[in-house]
Design a protein around this nucleic acid. Structure first.
Lengths: 146, 146
DNA sequence: ATCCGTGCAAAGTATTTGCAACCTA
DNA sequence: TAGGTTGCAAATACTTTGCACGGAT
């Protein structure tokens, strides 16, 4: 079993919530598709391939739980459905994406690029920033050549 | 009549779409509430105060139209409903907001702060950026004092 | 007369909730 | 065993669509 799978399961165990078969399966799926930004329905589709008895409501409830525990992050890219991804370990402050309007692929930008900017804004607007979200829209290399 | 109201109406007139009573009323409302980031339902509520016969579907259709014409922008702040604001004149490239998790108020950040960053990313990821969206979450001055 | 625009109601999509049965710690 | 958890179906929330009527050119 992958390290991050075990880590996530242990975090559920340490919480006041139970690690059920359904939750395990959903965590496995999320780890296996890391970097893909799946929607609840897509996760449901994958999960039911191996465990057809799991209900969509359970997927939603589990995703909520995992967000609460900080194991995953929920993001809305404006396409009308929420998308989920494993939280960056050790940091809950990096949500940068490149979104291609051609093929829809979402690429992670690894670094936190905004620290300087944040200090400036905090001063200028008297606002205490705890998190941010940054998305760039455009066209990726392969869609530009079409 | 406010200048931006007239400007918006002229842009509709110049398009292949008609400037109807309903569309005028909706534009007026959007100009009157500039800076408030209203949802479709909220706009509908305001519009029907003065023109109770306007339907919710018309509000949605008109908002779509105004987005298409570049008169307003549609943004999703992740609260499950779309929000609309007048487009920044002369620039379609500035979507920066400070969102207070205490009172929910959304403050505009005026400047486009990301030009340098964009050049770097375009090179690094071979991605042609056409737009971006930047949101900061935290607490505003008055919510911090609670 | 034509064609766009409208209101209404129905449909659609994403997500949440009530509840009895079930399962895990 | 006790209480969290589940599947199902129904409910909810937001948005879109079908359609016949209405209005402007």
């Amino acid at each position: 079993m992958e390290r991050s799978t075990r880590e996530a399961m242990e975090r559920v165990n340490r919480s006041r919530y139970k690690l059920t078969r359904q939750r395990s399966k959903i965590i496995e799926t999320l780890v296996a598709t890391a970097g893909e930004h799946l929607s609840a329905e897509e996760i449901y589709g994958l999960v039911t391939l191996e465990a057809p008895d799991i209900g969509l409501a359970t997927v939603y409830r589990t995703l909520d739980l995992l967000v609460t525990l900080g194991i995953i992050e929920k993001t809305d890219f404006g396409d009308g459905r929420a998308r989920y991804e494993l939280a960056s370990p050790g940091d809950d402050h990096r949500h940068h994406h490149l979104i291609c309007s051609g093929c829809g692929i979402i690429t992670e930008v690894k670094d936190d690029l905004l620290d300087d900017l944040e200090s400036t804004l905090e001063r200028e607007y008297d606002f205490c920033i705890t998190d941010h979200r940054l998305e760039f829209y455009g066209r990726c290399a392969s869609c530009r050549s079409d």
